[in-house]
Design a protein around this nucleic acid. Structure first.
Lengths: 345, 345
DNA sequence: TTGTCGAGTTAGAGCGCTCCAACTGTAGAC
DNA sequence: GTCTACAGTTGGAGCGCTCTAACTCGACAA
C-alpha cells in the first residue's frame, strides 16, 4: 500500500452537509434526509424550504455516509475482463439499462485481461460493499469466485461456474456452431474446416458443437480442426495451413470474427475468392463483421439481452425476490457476404 | 432460453468489523486500524496478532467507512463517453497504470454517448467524493464542466475547455492532419481530398490542419472538403461523392479510420485500386487500421501516454504538487498499405 | 371534555472507520 | 534516583448520513 501525504484541496474547505441544510431551512436533520430521499411523508412547505436551502448551498448528499448508514449501496460492481473487446461494451449497455430500471448504480472495473487485476478489482468491490457483482469473461479460478460469491450476490456472464454458488448467463455456443455448420451445409458445402480458439473462453463448446454437427450431418470424416487462439494472426495461420493441405475445404468456420478476418485475408491473397472458392463464417458478430468492407457471415450473441438478464437476475436475487440460476441464451445466424453456394457441388 | 435454478448459497449476514478483529486480537480498534494501513509504528508482535485475527475472520476494511472518516477516497472517477470506441480502452489503460503508481483507484462510468448520462455520472462521482475526475471525449457544456471543476480536480482528455478551470490532454490534431497531407504530398499526390468528421470532437482541427497544410504546399486550390461524421457510412458516401465528381482525387484523407474503411470499400467496388488509383489515410490508428486485411495508413494518437499524462497531472494537482494545465501531445504517422506513390505524377 | 388517530417532525443512537491527543512503559542520559 | 525520549498503544471524538421510536398537534369521534 502506498503512503501518500495528502494535502487537502484548497478548492473547497468542506462540502455542505445535511446539518447545514437543516440549519438554513430551520428544520431537523432527519427531515432534510427524508426530503433528499423523496419521502412522501413530508409536507409540501417543508419540502420546498429544504429544497431551496439545499440548492442554495449546493448541497449534495455524501454517498459514503449514506451507504454506510443505510447498510446498502444500491450499487453493483461490474468487472469487465477486457475493455478492448467491444463484446463487453454492448454487454455493459444491457446491464446498464436493466440496473437503471431498478434504481441501481454501476461501478465498472477493467481487469485488462489479468487475473491478478481481476482479483484485486473484486476485492475493491467487496470493500466498497457493493450489493452485487457481475463478472464478464472472468478468468478467475472457481475457488476464488466461490469465495466472492460467499460474500455477495454474483453473476458470471460468458462462463459458468457450476459449484461456485453464483448465477450465470451464457449463450449456447455449441448451438451457434451447429447453426454455422448447418448454414454452410445448406449451401452445399461438405468440406467444412474449423479454426478454433485454443484455450480461450467459449472455444471448447464451439469446437465440440462443430464436431457434433458435422457428425450429425454425416460429415464426421470431413471434420478438421485447426488450432488457433481467437486472434487475427491465428486465423491467418490456420488458413495458410489449410491452403497447404492436400484438399482445400470449401468453407471455414472460425472461432471468432477476428480469426475470420485473418483467414479471409490469407485466402484472398492466395488468389482465391470469398465466398466463391472458400466460404467463411465467424462468431460473435462484432462491429468488425458488420463493416461493408468485410461483410462477414457470423453467429450473433444477444449481448445486450445477456447483460440485461444478468443484471435483472442479480437484482432480483439481492432483493430476495428471485434466485441465482444459469441462463442459457440462444445465438443466431447473421448472413452476410462471406458465405454463398459451394462451387464444389 | 433455458433456465436452471441453483440452490441459493448461504451468505454472511454481516461482515466483521475492526471492532471484531480488535477483540479477537486483544488490542484496541485504533491499533487494528494502524495495522490495516501498514503503519510502521506497530510492533511486529501486534502486527502479527492483528493480521491473524483479521484473516481468521475474513475481515475486509469497509471502504465507505474508511473514506468517510479519512475525508479522502484515493479514488478518481473516469468518465468514458463511449465504451464502444476502442480509443477509450487504451486511454483507460494509460490512466490505470499511472493511477496505480500513485496508489489511486479508478471507478469507471460509461455515458453511452448521452450528455444526460454524462451529467448523471459526474453527479455520482461528486456524491462519492472522488478525489479527482477525468472525462474522456466529454460532450458536456463548458458551463456544466466548470461547475464540476469548482468542486473537484478535473482533467479532460481529447477536448479542451479553456475557461472551465480544468486541465486537458489532447493531441495536436491539426498537426496530425498536416502529417497525413505531407506524407501524401511526398508520394507525389497533389489532388488530396478530405472527408471530415462534421461536428464531432476533433473534427474541426483535423479539417483546418488539412486546409492549412494544403495551402502551405501551394495546393490550396486543390483542397476539397466533403462533410462526413466519423462513421463508415459517411466515409462511403464521401467517397461516392468524390467518384461522381469531375476530377477524381488521387488521395483521400478521412477524419478517422472508420470513415477510411468506408471509403476504401466504395473505391474498390468502383473497380479502382487502393493505393494504386486512390491512396487513403485515416486517423486514430484503431485496431481496425492494423488489420492485415485493411492495412490502413493512419495517424496515431499516443492514447496510453495521454491517459497516463492525464492521471499524473490530476493526481499531482490533487496533492498540491502540481497544477492543472493543457498538455498537447504529438501524433505520429503510421504507414501501411493504403498509401503509395501517385500514379498521376 | 377526553381520547384517538394520523400526518408531520424530531432526537438520538448508531454505521465502521480515522485521527488526535494522551497515555504507558522501557531505555538511556545525567 | 530522576528526567527525558521515544516507541507503541489507546480512548474518544468525530466523518455525514439513516433509522427507529417517540413526539407534537390539530381534527374528529365519543
Amino acid at each position: 500500500m502506498h503512503y501518500l501525504v495528502h494535502v487537502p484541496s484548497t478548492r473547497r474547505n468542506s462540502a455542505p452537509t445535511l446539518e447545514d441544510v437543516a440549519q438554513i431551512a430551520g428544520v431537523s436533520r432527519a427531515l432534510v434526509s427524508l426530503v433528499m430521499r423523496d419521502s412522501p411523508r413530508v409536507s409540501d412547505e417543508s419540502r420546498q424550504r429544504v429544497t431551496e436551502a439545499a440548492s442554495k448551498l449546493g448541497y449534495r448528499p455524501n454517498l459514503m455516509a449514506r451507504n454506510l448508514a443505510a447498510r446498502r449501496t444500491m450499487t453493483i460492481g461490474v468487472l469487465l475482463n477486457d475493455l478492448h473487446n467491444p463484446w463487453f461494451a454492448e454487454l455493459t449497455d444491457g446491464i446498464h439499462i436493466a440496473a437503471e430500471r431498478y434504481g441501481y448504480q454501476l461501478i465498472l472495473a477493467s481487469a485488462r485481461r489479468s487475473p491478478r487485476l481481476e482479483s484485486r478489482a473484486l476485492d475493491t468491490f467487496l470493500a466498497s460493499r457493493v450489493d452485487g457483482v457481475i463478472v464478464a469473461g472472468c478468468r478467475l479460478s472457481a475457488v476464488r469466485l466461490e469465495s466472492v460469491a460467499a460474500e455477495v450476490a454474483l453473476v458470471s456472464v460468458g462462463r459458468t461456474f457450476p459449484k461456485a454458488g453464483c448465477g450465470s448467463v451464457t449463450t449456447d455456443e455449441a448451438d451457434g456452431a451447429r447453426m454455422a455448420v448447418e448454414h454452410l451445409y445448406g449451401l452445399g458445402h461438405r468440406r467444412i474446416a474449423h479454426i478454433d480458439g485454443g484455450k480461450g473462453a467459449g472455444s471448447a463448446p464451439r469446437r465440440s458443437g462443430y464436431i457434433r454437427a458435422m457428425r450429425q450431418l454425416g460429415l464426421g470424416d470431413n471434420a478438421q480442426v485447426i488450432s488457433g487462439d481467437f486472434t487475427e494472426e491465428a486465423g491467418a495461420q490456420g488458413a495458410e495451413k489449410l491452403l497447404r493441405g492436400p484438399v482445400l475445404p470449401t468453407a471455414i468456420f472460425t472461432a471468432n470474427d477476428l480469426s475470420a478476418v485473418g483467414a479471409i485475408d490469407v485466402v484472398e491473397r492466395a488468389g482465391l475468392t470469398v465466398p466463391g472458392d472458400v466460404a467463411i463464417v465467424g462468431f460473435d458478430n462484432t462491429s468488425l463483421a458488420a463493416l461493408k468492407h468485410i461483410g462477414l457471415t457470423t453467429i450473433d450473441q444477444p449481448r445486450r439481452e445477456m447483460g440485461a438478464a444478468a443484471a435483472t437476475m442479480l437484482i432480483e436475487a439481492i432483493n430476495d425476490r428471485g434466485e441465482l440460476g444459469d441462463v442459457l441464451m440462444s445465438p443466431s445466424l447473421v448472413i452476410r457476404r462471406t458465405t454463398g453456394p459451394s462451387a464444389a457441388v
